[in-house]
Amino acid sequence: MTRFILKRLGSGLVVLFAVSVLTFFLLYISSGSIARNILGDQATPEQLAVKEAELGLDQPIAARYFSWLTDALGGNLGTSWFTSEPVASSLATRIPVTMTMVFAAMILIAIIATLIGVAAAVKRGWVDRVVQIGAIVGDSIPGFVIGIILVTILAIQLGIFPATSTISPGEPASAWVLSLTLPVIALLINGVTGGAQQIRSAVIKQLERDYVRTLRSRGIGEREVLFRHVLRSAAPAGLTVLSLQLIGMLGGVVIIEQIFALPGMGPLAVAATGQSDQPVVMGVVMYTVAVVILVNLIVDLLNGWLNPKVRAS
């Protein structure tokens, strides 16, 4: 078990490394005019040269990457080239907002998609048809468009929710809940429809398996067959989809935060990539990829726990 985790963590680190190299070199392409962008058009060539030296832009790319890497490994993500704010601290204030939404959406997707998927698989008939139609509608509207629709109707027209966020670390929980409700709904609808479809087909497939009939023949009640046996075997399919959805959501949340004017990582990412603010972009990319790797690891562990055959190999 420990070996498995270490192996996965090891390959996760390799992925992280590969992504850091790729991102760093991508940003290098546009780093030519950074000093001018920071100092403005009036800057003299001398001032520009000083700035470039200060940022280390006069160094060869490999040396710059190496110095970034050693700093990052030492826990120092650098400071923004444009705002001079330490990357670590600006991430620290924004991560809670983004991750609260993403994980709330994930948990809700897991619960709602399971309930809907199981209901559609077991009841079939009209319940199934409603779910199918709902899935088509849900799949047809991108998450951010759902966000726009929600904010237009529920916040602007009806005034039930705040149209823009009022959250900051000091605010009471109720303000957070009120501010984050619509964004979370916008984030989760695509996930719910996709997840429910997966759970539905996985449950239908499991219900046709021989062991289900045998369990019933042994006098095990329908509910126990469904929730303990069938759902357990159907869960890996759902978990895999959920982990893929998380990856999509980490991107989708950027647009959602823009719509709801939330002080999460989205605006930071948009601003930093717009300015080629290398330390900030590197910080954001590394953080999100690390989250993905961690969640994938957790999903693998859960799958192993659910399926003894996987555990053995």
């Binding site: 992925v15 992504v19 991102t23 991508l26 940003l27 990856i247 999509g248 980490l250 991107g251 989708g252 950027v254 647009i255 990412a269 948009v270 990539t273 972009v281 954001v284 990319v285 999100t288 990829v289 993905v292 790797i293 994938n296």
Partner: peptide, 10 residues
Amino acid sequence: SLPGLIVLLT
């Protein structure tokens, strides 16, 4: 394992 939108921003 790359979040699409973040990569596209980069």
